[in-house]
């Protein structure tokens, strides 16, 4: 077991975890943050995307011990004080959600993009979510949502 300390959505967390525990397991099973989904478990679908020090990662491929000392941001940290972020609101308004299983990962990839590039080009948007698979929407509305949230992406 390894002792780790990290921040998750702004809260300090301290835990003792097995070496093989993934960050996704830690978030879902230890912290009950089930917004990040396991769609494949091998880093190919993006449904478990979270931000590790503002960088998007597939949490199924990151070990919990690798997050030691870092700042983790999940979908549960996206809305502040019960208010949807502009990005979340744009997903609702653009009809970018169908079954919703890919949505948390998709929004986190978009969040990472907006943090590093507040006014992204269409190419940047496509590139940012190219690793997030969605089987329902055909992506068009998702791209529209991220475009609509352009300029709102600084730290909320």
């Amino acid at each position: 077991m390894h002792d780790i300390e990290l921040r998750v959505n702004g809260h300090a967390e301290r835990a003792s975890v097995p070496a093989g525990m993934t960050l996704l397991e830690f978030l879902r099973d230890r912290l009950a943050l089930t917004g990040a989904k396991e769609g494949c478990g091998i880093g190919e679908c993006g449904a478990c995307t979270v931000l590790l020090d503002r960088t998007p990662v597939t949490a199924c491929l990151v070990l919990a011990v690798e997050a030691d000392g870092l700042d983790v941001r999940t979908i549960e940290g996206e809305a502040a004080d019960g208010e949807l972020s502009a990005l979340q609101r744009a997903f609702v308004d653009a009809g970018a959600v169908q079954c919703g299983f890919c949505t948390p990962g998709m929004i986190m990839s978009a969040r990472a993009l907006l943090l590093r590039s507040p006014h992204p080009s269409d190419e940047e948007i496509v590139e940012a979510i190219a690793g997030n698979l969605c089987r329902c929407t055909g992506y068009e509305a998702i791209l529209a949502a991220i475009r609509a949230a352009s300029g709102t992406g600084g730290e909320p």
Binding site: G35, E78, Q88, V92
Partner: peptide, 21 residues
């Protein structure tokens, strides 16, 4: 009318629960 999905807020906040969860 293009009424937005009623479940969209749950889904964009990660609070929608699936059997998976």
């Amino acid at each position: 009318k293009s009424v937005p999905r009623g479940d969209a807020v749950e889904k964009v906040t990660g609070s929608a629960r699936y059997a998976h969860d």
